[in-house]
């Protein structure tokens, strides 16, 4: 906002002067703020349990010894290496859940954009209304329902609810109506292509950017999932990393000295964020473009 104040004073040329320094200062401060905890985590993951409290260079710099590989080894043996089991579970929930949610949203978005069917307007309005229903308001009801049909404490208890992604449907519908010409589908039909073949061979290739976006967003949603799994799961073998680490945290704070595993907590947290952070950095153009699709139309 303050840049505006600055530029108001100057002409076009002055904009290159002071405000530019101001912009740099603001952005550098922002970068520091947003990177601060990440930097702390990187440092902390290389420390021993005691080093976390009395490392000789303080909490924002490496200790004299690097314990990262030891921490990694300890993660592999502590409670029979349950951390890696959590890691695998998270991958399973995120990839399978994300794939399923994407497939269902892509089909639905295409159906809404390209077919005129009975009840469509009402159906779509209900979906738009559902966007307003808070996801966590459904957690306790879902849990109550699942415990009645003995579905709690199974992989399905986490995987199935993840499949619901109304925002994905909304995004795909907008993308299909904007980027997929009817003439193209019509031409394929005239050539004798069936509806499914048209969908798979003509529509899907064009929808790839939007599909990638919805897939990424679904994966992030599933990867970050915490409330639902923490409610429907009690068996540690089924936990995703988020639930597992929060239990380790609770135990380290409340438990005896032997149960304090701060170093495992920090190194475990560090390792768990690497895949998502890398995915976001390398797939930048997809999420930037995809979020724009949703917002411009709204």
């Amino acid at each position: 906002m303050t840049t505006i104040e600055h530029t108001r004073k100057g002409t076009e040329h002055r904009i290159q002067g002071n405000p530019r320094i101001f912009t740099y200062v603001v952005l550098i401060l922002c970068c520091c703020y947003f990177l601060l905890p990440v930097w702390w985590l990187i440092i902390a993951s290389t420390k021993t349990n005691s080093g976390l409290f009395n490392g000789i260079h303080g909490s924002m710099w490496f200790d004299s010894t690097n314990a990262f590989w030891d921490n990694l080894k300890q993660l592999g043996t502590y409670q029979d290496g349950i951390y890696w089991r959590w890691f695998a579970n998270t991958l399973l929930y995120a990839l399978v859940g994300g794939f399923g949610a994407t497939a269902i949203s892509v089909m639905a978005g295409y159906g809404f954009a390209k077919y005129r069917f009975r009840g469509k307007t009402l159906y779509f309005n209900i979906i738009l209304g559902a966007l307003m229903i808070p996801a966590t308001a459904l957690v306790i009801p879902t849990f109550l329902l699942m415990s009645d049909i003995n579905l709690t404490d199974t992989y399905w208890a986490v995987l199935l609810p993840v499949l619901l992604n109304p925002f994905g449907v909304y995004l795909m519908r907008i993308y299909c109506s904007q980027s997929l010409p009817d003439e193209m589908l019509e031409a394929a039909r005239v050539d004798g292509s069936g509806e499914f073949r048209t969908f798979f061979q003509v529509a899907l290739p064009i929808m790839t950017p939007a599909i990638t976006t919805v897939f990424l967003l679904s994966i992030v949603g599933a990867w970050n999932n915490f409330f639902l799994p923490s409610v429907v799961l009690t068996n540690p073998n089924l936990f995703p990393i988020t639930v597992g680490l929060s239990q380790w945290q609770a135990r380290s704070t409340a438990g005896s000295a032997a149960e304090q595993i701060w170093n495992l907590l920090t190194s475990g947290a560090f390792i768990s964020v690497i895949p998502m952070v890398l995915a976001f950095i390398f797939l930048q153009r997809y999420w930037v473009g995809g979020l724009a699709t949703g917002s411009v139309k709204a």
């Binding site: 990867w223 915490f226 680490l245 947290a269 998502m276």
Partner: peptide, 10 residues
Amino acid sequence: AIPAVIGALM
């Protein structure tokens, strides 16, 4: 890209 749980932990 960082789960809310990990963010709150940090």
